[in-house]
Design a protein around this nucleic acid. Structure first.
Length: 575
RNA sequence: CGGGGCGUAGCGCAGUGGUAGCGCGCACGGUUCGGGUCCGUGAGGUCGGAGGUUCAAAUCCUCCCGCCCCGACCA
């Protein structure tokens, strides 16, 4: 490819409205063309990088036994009502009507379609297991697209689906996919961590995310500094430091005029927030729930939902709280009746806590569980925080702080799920086993955001001058720069070299513009193709006509005779 | 959806009531040639949109639209 013929142009300055490094670089390099919020064109350079990523994905999916297919992006809304997910996706689901006024959706994912396909194809255990995948455009009407390709409304995803006869088979597929994912991400130059995750709206059981640690990521994960335990904060369990043993003291009522929040109450009574009991009210699937948790911890809504096997939770408004007969700001599980009480296990670990008294401006000292109150559900519903102990290390060593948790931000580039029968049940997908019994088919589903992966690769591979993408996904491998092109000799040798590198099977980008040295070098650094080859009057004047060959990540070029350039480039590319 | 910022030439920006400018880029001519050369000439704008105030609006008022960031939300 010649620079003079490229459909695209590099930008000298950073576009004003791009802040994340990948977004900035994608725009400056002319790899994407923004159309509207969350909608982008992939310009030729960006498209080539995506193709490279897709090639890697194809290779790994095929190696894992996947069969490629392709499903419609436009789907009847009915399908989504059958699976009961139309509501779950809510406003993210893009709806439209056809000319006959029938309701359609632009698919945010393809479980519904693949499941109905499975139903029409799978009859017998002999048809199992099966693994299919596609790379397809998805549509999600995101509340807030961001970061260029990091979160878009129209984006490409590789989605794979497995059909399995039993748990053992599903587990095997799941493990094989996890391995394929690790291969894909490492081939794209990413060091991802695999974390335990929540399966969210997709439903199902086991689920793990592949997270690329990055400041600009929107997910928070916790990692153990000792054993490598890693989990999404939605799911992470933290082990709390044991509280010093105290003998329970008698309950005591205290006046706390105007003190409502935990910090106010704790400050007023001169105790640490960890010695208080916080009350938070949620409307869970429309029902008022009293959530009790130690004052220094935060309620994790995902865990709360799981504990109650519920779908939707939100914090109740003060009016709703009062409407339920509860005392906003001084509520307490002590002496409470008629409301479901969910308590975090932390309430059992402390003694002599401060809690509300269910009377305005009044709190109780020395509240102890179970002496003073009971709960309907008692489990872990706290958000893990840095400094908490690692559950895995704890289980191993019995010491709460054998390993401690840290939090990190990250970009979710892949997600694998065991759906179990959550999709096959509503669609009635069954098979006959070897004994002729009808059994439900199990499913797994496995996604990778292709554009997000490119953005992630740039986040992980750039410096102050530009991108440093690995050769596996860079749009071109060799960037040939001719300096002083009106010098006939340079022009002639550069052309020859261009043809020669192409003929050698390397993907070469030739900067044949009549630009000054600085412009060309800066663009070469910006685009960041792995190997740069420079031809100039100076290199041609050497002992023998030569060119400079330099890796993007190195600072010192080497001078190589013209007929050795291909070999030197190959050496740097490691091919 | 809440909070914040911003919409003026392709990009980055200035312009607080008197009829629109700078830098870069672009075109042409010359010049220079190893890290965003220099000189000259030129093209390019319904100042996001609609309404209003005013003799006069990029500028003041109202409404709307769009983009970015934080939060909420998010396979």
């Amino acid at each position: 490819m010649r620079f003079t013929q490229l459909f695209g142009r590099t930008l000298r300055a950073d576009p004003a409205d791009a802040e994340t490094p990948s977004h900035r670089l994608l725009l400056r390099a002319g790899m994407i063309g923004p159309l509207a919020s969350g909608l982008n064109s992939y310009l030729p350079l960006g498209q080539r990088a995506l193709r490279n990523i897709e090639r890697i994905i194809h290779e790994e999916m095929d190696a894992a036994g996947g069969q490629e297919l392709r499903m419609p992006a436009l789907q009847p809304l009915d399908l989504w009502e059958q699976s009961s997910r139309a509501q779950g996706f809510g406003k993210h689901l893009l709806r439209l009507k056809d000319r006959r006024d029938r309701d359609l959706v632009l698919a945010p994912t393809h479980e519904e379609v693949v499941t109905t396909l499975g139903r029409s194809i799978i009859r017998s255990y002999r048809d199992l297991p099966m693994l299919v995948y596609q790379i397809q455009t998805k549509f999600r009407d995101e509340a807030r697209p961001r970061g260029g390709l990091i979160r878009a409304r129209e984006f490409d995803m590789k989605d794979a689906y497995s059909f399995n006869a039993d748990d053992a088979s599903l587990d095997q597929t799941y493990q094989r996919m996890a391995l394929a994912y690790r291969n894909i991400f490492s081939r794209c130059g990413l060091n991802t961590v695999m974390v335990e995750a929540d399966s969210g709206a997709i439903g199902g059981k086991d689920s793990q995310e592949f997270i690329l640690p990055s400041e600009v990521g929107e997910d928070t994960i916790v990692i153990c500094n000792r054993c490598g335990y890693a989990a999404n904060t939605e799911r992470a369990e933290g082990v709390l430091p044991p509280s010093p043993a105290e003998s329970p003291l008698p309950l005591e009522e205290v006046r706390t005029p105007g003190q409502k929040t935990i910090n106010e109450v704790a400050g007023f009574l001169r105790v640490s927030p960890g010695k208080t009991l916080k009350a938070v009210f949620y409307l869970v699937d429309g029902k008022m729930v009293f959530v009790a948790i130690r004052g220094d911890l935060e309620v994790n809504e995902i865990k709360l939902l799981r504990a109650l096997k519920a779908k939707e939770a939100r914090i109740a408004t003060p009016e709703e709280v009062r409407g339920a007969g509860l005392v906003d700001g001084a509520a307490s599980p002590v002496g409470l009746r008629g409301v479901t009480v969910v308590a975090d296990r932390s309430v059992t670990s402390g003694a002599n806590l401060v809690a509300g008294a269910n009377k305005p401006d009044t709190h109780l000292r020395n509240v102890n569980y179970p002496r003073d109150f009971s709960t309907d559900v008692l489990t872990d519903i706290a958000t893990a925080q840095p400094g908490h102990g690692c559950p895995r290390c704890h289980a191993e060593t019995a010491r709460w702080d054998a390993g401690t948790l840290e939090t990190k931000r990250g970009i979710e580039v892949g997600h694998i799920f065991k759906l179990g029968t959550s999709m096959t049940d509503p669609f009635g997908v069954t098979y006959l086993d070897a004994q002729g019994r009808q059994r439900p088919v199990l499913m797994g589903c496995f996604g990778i955001g292709v554009g997000r992966l490119l953005a992630g690769a740039i986040e992980a591979n750039h410096d102050e001058k530009g991108m440093t993408l690995p050769a596996s996904i860079a749009p071109y491998q060799v960037h040939l720069v001719a300096l002083n092109l009106d010098n006939a000799e340079v022009a002639q040798h550069a052309e020859a070299l261009y043809e020669q590198i192409k003929a050698a099977g390397l993907q070469v980008f030739y900067d044949d513009r009549p630009e000054s040295t600085g412009v060309k070098f800066n663009d070469a650094d910006l685009l960041g193709f792995p190997v740069r080859v420079v031809v100039s009057p100076r290199t041609l004047r050497a002992t023998q006509p030569s060119a400079e060959v330099k890796a993007r990540k190195e600072s010192q070029p080497r001078v190589v005779a013209l007929d050795g350039v291909v070999e030197a480039a190959r050496g740097l590319l490691g091919t």
